[in-house]
């Protein structure tokens, strides 16, 4: 045999599905396109500005941190920093000053992700770390929302549906508007329908499984449904809860983040259930009108524990069930 071409020897298996980290990350980005189009329609140029700069900041910070602080191969090509950038932007109001956005991106990438060792090692969802950092540091800027350009009113800013629900229940948009996204809110969270389209795409491409979104949305619907049966006020309306605020965005795109969510299907259901409960508790009885980010980050912290106590359903556990 020709000695020039040495044979490669490695343990089985010798073929690979071709799946890769970038493929999954870009898959999620594709699923976010409908929501982006809605925000483009609603917030016009501001949507583009915030999203583009958020991505640039996130990718830039990751590049600088890997290159100059960690002194490792830059990992930006895996697409995870882009995804963090887009998700962070989708969680922000469209009129946020860019310097605040930069601080948010630094918190997301620097604190949320790279300080733990980069993709795969972080405990909390980086985009949510960025958002919560901003929410606590700049409460005023983070909770004033520009009125959608398509909604013809004179006001310049408005409160979100949830804020109205809690503090001003007579001033609610119609359910159809909420479904389509003609309401005040963060960039990406406004249209439930667009987000559901993204969910459909990710399920079809097998990027995520149904467990987490279903558990969260189901818990919220049932929880508020029971309250609505007891006391039918708008604050208890299950559909309003499902279609408003960051619930859809969180349940579909934030809580399902691979790194920070549980591994087993059982664990995913438990995780989703508690996110739903915590969200509803904050929404109904907390100081903030919205509780999704806090709920997810809290449950991110419990993920290792859930992983430890839930095991996948093993072969042979059910005996002779012919």
């Amino acid at each position: 045999m020709d000695m020039e071409t040495k044979l490669v020897v490695s343990p089985s298996p010798h073929i690979h599905s071709g799946d890769s980290i970038p493929k999954n990350m870009y898959g999620v980005l594709i699923a976010l396109i409908p929501a982006f189009l809605v925000s483009l329609y609603v917030f016009r140029l501001d949507a583009v500005l915030i999203t583009v700069f958020s991505v640039l900041f996130c990718v830039g910070f990751e590049y600088l941190i890997t290159k100059f602080i960690l002194k490792k191969e830059p990992t930006i090509s895996d697409g995870s920093a882009i995804l963090t950038g887009v998700l962070l932007a989708f969680n922000l109001p469209s009129n946020l000053p860019l310097w605040i956005l930069a601080i948010g991106a630094l918190a997301a990438i620097g604190i949320g992700k790279m300080s733990f060792g980069g993709l795969g090692n972080n405990i909390f969802n980086p985009a949510l770390v960025g958002r919560i950092f901003l929410l606590i540091s700049f409460p005023a800027q983070m909770t004033t929302w520009p009125v959608p350009a398509v909604a013809a009113t004179d006001a310049v800013t408005s409160a979100t549906v949830l804020a109205n629900l809690k503090f001003n229940p007579d001033n609610l948009p119609s359910l159809t508007h909420m479904l389509l996204g003609i309401e005040g809110g963060s960039l990406g969270e406004i249209s439930a329908l667009a987000l559901l389209l993204g969910l459909g795409y990710m399920l079809w491409k097998k990027i995520i499984t149904w467990h987490i979104p279903t558990a969260i949305l189901g818990t919220v619907a049932i929880f508020s449904g029971i309250l609505y049966l007891i006391n039918p006020i708008p604050l208890h309306h299950p559909l309003i809860h499902l279609f408003s605020g960051g619930l859809m965005l969180g349940a579909i795109f934030m809580a399902t983040d691979y790194v920070t969510s549980p591994l087993t299907k059982k664990g995913m259901l438990i995780y989703g259930f508690f996110i739903g409960i915590i969200t509803m508790c904050i929404r109904l009885w907390g100081a903030y009108p919205e509780g999704m980010s806090f709920a997810i980050v809290l449950m991110n912290g419990f993920t290792p524990l859930i992983n430890y106590y839930t095991t996948p359903k093993r072969f042979g556990e059910v005996r002779k069930n012919g």
């Binding site: 993709l119 795969g120 790194v259």
Partner: peptide
Amino acid sequence: DCIRCAKCIHVCPMG
């Protein structure tokens, strides 16, 4: 690094 996507768990025929 593992991104904890859990796909290996979903495909393992022995659970």
